[in-house]
C-alpha cells in the first residue's frame, strides 16, 4: 500500500492542477453530488442519531452519579463535531462512494474505456478524477455538518428520555452551547475535507491500477475501501495533534 503513496500523491497533484477546469465539468460534479447525497443521506441520518444517542447513554449515567449530568450536552457535542462525525461519515462514504468510484474506474480500465478516452485526447484525470474529487470534497463536509446536528439531537433525545440522566432538551443544548466554539466545528470540517481527499484519491488511483477481469475489479474495490480506512484513521491521529497545536 505505501509504495503506491507516491503515485497517489502524483494523481492528487495532477487533479489539483486541473482544478481551474472544474467549472467545465460542473454537470458531472452535480451528478456526483446527487449520487453521493442519494446514497448516503439516509444512512448518515440513522448512523448519527444512534451515535449521538449511545454517547449520551455511555457518559450520562456516570456524569449524573457525580452530579455532573448538566455536562452531557457538552460531551456529546464536542465528541460529535471533533471526532465522531468526521470519522464515521468518512467511513460511511469510503464504503459507499469510494467503493463505487474504484469499481467504476476499475471497470473502465479493464474494458479499455480509459484507453479510448486517451486516444480521443481526453485526459482521464480531468474527465473522471476531477469531478469525483471535487464532489466528494464538497459533499463530505456538508454531510458532517448534517451528522453533527443529527448526532446532537440523538444525544438530546437519550439524555431527556433516560431516567438516569434526565437532562431536559433545554439544559442539554445550553450546556452544548456553552462548551462548543465555532473552532470545534471548523476543526471537524477540516478533518473531513482531508478525509474526502484521501477517499477520492485512493479510490480513483486504485481504479486506474485495476488489472484482470471482474475479479480484478472486486480486488480493487476491497483495496480502495481498506486502504482509505487505514489512511483515514492514521491521518485522524496526526490531524488531531496538529489541530490541537494550532488552536491552542
Amino acid at each position: 500500500m505505501f509504495q503506491n503513496l507516491g503515485e497517489m500523491l502524483v494523481l492528487l497533484w495532477r487533479t489539483l492542477r486541473a482544478l481551474p477546469f472544474a467549472p467545465r465539468q460542473r454537470h458531472k460534479i452535480l451528478e456526483q453530488l446527487f449520487e453521493i447525497g442519494n446514497a448516503s443521506l439516509l444512512m448518515a441520518c440513522v448512523l448519527s442519531l444512534f451515535i449521538g444517542g449511545v454517547l449520551a447513554l455511555q457518559t450520562g449515567p456516570t456524569l449524573a452519579e457525580r452530579g455532573l449530568a448538566a455536562f452531557v450536552g457538552q460531551i456529546v457535542g464536542l465528541s460529535m463535531c471533533r471526532e465522531l462525525a468526521p470519522v464515521m461519515m468518512a467511513v460511511l462514504i469510503a464504503g459507499r462512494i469510494g467503493s463505487a468510484m474504484a469499481a467504476e474506474i476499475g471497470s473502465m480500465t479493464v474494458y479499455q474505456e480509459i484507453d479510448a478516452l486517451r486516444t480521443m485526447n481526453i485526459n482521464p484525470v480531468h474527465y473522471l478524477v476531477l469531478p469525483r474529487l471535487v464532489a466528494i470534497s464538497i459533499a463530505l463536509p456538508l454531510l458532517v455538518v448534517f451528522s453533527i446536528l443529527v448526532g446532537w439531537t440523538g444525544g438530546a433525545l437519550v439524555a431527556s428520555a433516560n431516567y438516569e440522566i434526565a437532562v431536559s432538551f433545554h439544559g442539554y443544548f445550553n450546556s452544548l452551547r456553552d462548551g462548543i466554539t465555532l473552532m470545534d466545528v471548523v476543526n471537524g470540517l477540516l478533518k473531513s475535507l482531508a478525509f474526502a481527499v484521501v477517499i477520492g484519491t485512493v479510490s480513483c488511483h486504485q481504479g486506474f491500477q485495476t488489472i484482470g477481469g471482474p475479479r480484478g475489479i472486486g480486488r480493487s474495490v476491497t483495496k480502495a475501501v481498506v486502504n482509505s480506512l487505514v489512511l483515514i484513521l492514521i491521518l485522524d491521529y496526526f490531524l488531531t495533534r496538529l489541530l490541537m497545536h494550532v488552536s491552542s
Binding site: 471497470s107 473502465m108 474494458y111 479499455q112 474505456e113 484507453d115 479510448a116 486516444t119 474527465y127
Partner: peptide, 25 residues
C-alpha cells in the same frame, strides 16, 4: 482515432453521447 477491437464505448453514456464525446469534451 482508433476503433478498438472490443469497441471500448463508455458504458455510462448513451450511444449519442459516446459518438459526440470528442466534440463535446
Amino acid at each position: 482515432a482508433m476503433v478498438f477491437q472490443s469497441g471500448a464505448l463508455l458504458s455510462s453514456l448513451n450511444v449519442g453521447d459516446n459518438v459526440g464525446l470528442y466534440l463535446s469534451e
